[in-house]
Amino acid sequence: MEAFTRLTSVAVPLPRPNIDTDQIIPARFLSRPREVDHGEFLFHDARRRPETGEQDPEFPLNREVFGAARIIVAGRNFACGSSRESAVWALFDAGFRCAIAPSFGDIFRTNGMKNGLLPVVLPAEAVAALTAQVEAAPEAEVTVDLRALEVTFPDGSVHGFEVDPFARHCLLEGLDEIGLTLSLEDEIAAFERRYGRENTR
């Protein structure tokens, strides 16, 4: 996993509630292996005009000024719904490393932490203020610091956030958990001996 420590970037605002993972990556693109670049599937239908299939210039991710954005600022319950990890892959492959929202779908939040995409929960008022700032000055930069657990808005205000300490450690170091858990073989084997055949059949 790619480590995340600190990031300064322009941020693209997408202030809609309940953006689900079906919108982030439609189901018909889910049969691709991880090696495939999923960036082109990101908001595939949402960013196009339904009548013509052409890119909708109004959709925030299509605006040139946000082309280099590595942070997405979204509405409440961002990435709810399906557990598809390719929603994270699509954001990651399109260059995103952080999503800021008042709340996230639980599964997406976990998937993000395990794939180098940091989900940051800030109070709704703070997210609304950040959205207003980046809409007013799209070229303004936002800094997200995972060590300090702080987001610095374009206006200089600093906002603390919380992340699970264990997941934070893994993301800071770029560790994946499988190796770590495998080192706990003795504990797992001891549990299995205690547990016996319970719930096997």
Partner: peptide, 9 residues
């Protein structure tokens, strides 16, 4: 429900 990384885990 879990994601793909968790399925691997």
């Amino acid at each position: 429900g879990i994601g793909s990384s968790e399925v691997a885990h």
